[in-house]
């Protein structure tokens, strides 16, 4: 129990993970034999700050958008963190943090989400300004404008605690994020259907889709509307599955006419998104089964200073 929430630390699962009894799929730890979820890994405020400050790091947390140098910086930072707090390397912490899945971006502080979104918005803005090889369809989507609207909504989310009408503010933010998620989803679909489109444009859109989806679930948890969070997480997952079925790896390679490396990165981003979105419904079900308050859960993770990762064991009832 940490801070009133039945968190444990990852080292308790290390032996089972090392022997193959437990396997990790994104932020989920599963029983290798039954496939049953045994726990959810969650990044904490300590980890977020370690990778989110002092680095020019990452627009989004998406693997494809982190350059080699930046990855090396993150890797160094995480290695230092690991030795400092004793997190066992078996869980491939660096991969988790630098992948599009991240872990528990749902719980990341709003300021960090906002920072990621702004960086993606800048990247999209640069893409829109470029004249070469960017299809008109990308410009017509006016995604930059959508990003600005979402950014504004997230700023309001960040300051919600200081407002008298805080719940009403966060509800309005959630609505805007829902709209943003659907707009980004449509943007990915429309852009990826355009032959010869630049792979980076799609990666940017996937990253912003990821941020919008995660922030919307965070808004529901902040409001402690856990059933709504679970329902919306499922809807997001279904939409992402439909998108994934439209763009398996062979279609990406054929449609984009890109290098195999680009297709691999895109596929990895999509798979990372699937991992993240797949984990959230069961995480929220777990919060419901354990009768944990959504806002308490978020605040406890954000406030954590000793452990970069915490584990929430699955309730038998979830």
């Amino acid at each position: 129990m940490i801070g009133g929430i039945p968190f444990t630390i990852p080292s308790q699962f290390m032996a089972a993970h090392a022997t193959g009894q437990i396997v990790r799929y994104g932020a989920v730890l599963k029983d290798a034999h039954t496939g049953r979820i045994v726990a959810h890994l969650q990044e904490t405020g300590l980890l977020q700050r370690a990778v989110g400050t002092g680095l020019s790091f990452d627009p989004s947390g998406a693997s494809g958008l982190i350059g080699v140098v930046q990855n090396a910086q993150i890797s160094q930072k995480i290695t230092q963190l690991q030795s400092a707090v004793g997190v066992v390397q078996n869980l491939q912490l660096v991969n988790l943090v630098s992948s599009v899945a991240g872990i528990g971006v749902t719980a990341a502080s709003t300021a960090i989400i906002l920072g990621r979104l702004n960086a993606i918005g800048d990247r999209i803005g640069r893409l829109e300004q470029g004249v070469e090889a960017l299809p008109g369809v990308f410009r017509k989507l006016e995604l930059r404008n959508t990003m600005i609207e979402i950014g504004t909504a997230l700023e309001r989310f960040e300051s919600a605690d200081n407002r008298r009408d805080k719940d009403q503010t966060v509800r309005a933010v959630e609505e805007k994020l829902h709209y943003g998620f659907d707009r980004m989803l449509d943007g990915v679909r429309t852009t990826a259907e355009t032959p010869g489109v630049d792979a980076e444009a799609i990666r940017c859109l996937l990253a912003s889709l990821s941020v919008c989806g995660a922030a919307q679930i965070k808004a529901f948890l902040w409001l402690n509307e856990r059933e709504m969070a679970a329902g919306q997480a499922r809807r997001q997952f279904v939409k992402l599955m439909e998108l994934s079925e439209m763009f398996p790896k062979d279609v990406l390679m054929d449609r984009l006419d890109c290098e195999a490396d680009d297709a691999d990165r895109l596929e990895a981003d999509l798979a990372g998104l699937r991992q993240r979105f797949a984990a959230i419904p069961s995480l929220v079900e777990n919060l419901i089964a354990l009768d944990l308050d959504g806002r308490d859960y978020l605040e406890r993770l954000d406030a954590e200073r000793d452990h970069p990762l915490l584990v929430l064991p699955a309730s038998a009832a979830a």
Binding site: K249, D254, E267, A271, A278, A279, A318
Partner: peptide, 24 residues
Amino acid sequence: MSDEIERAEILDWWSAERGRIFVE
């Protein structure tokens, strides 16, 4: 009970196999 993890894993397999066939 949620089955999203299993669904995502099946889609991972499907996409990877399609990609492998495409390349090979």
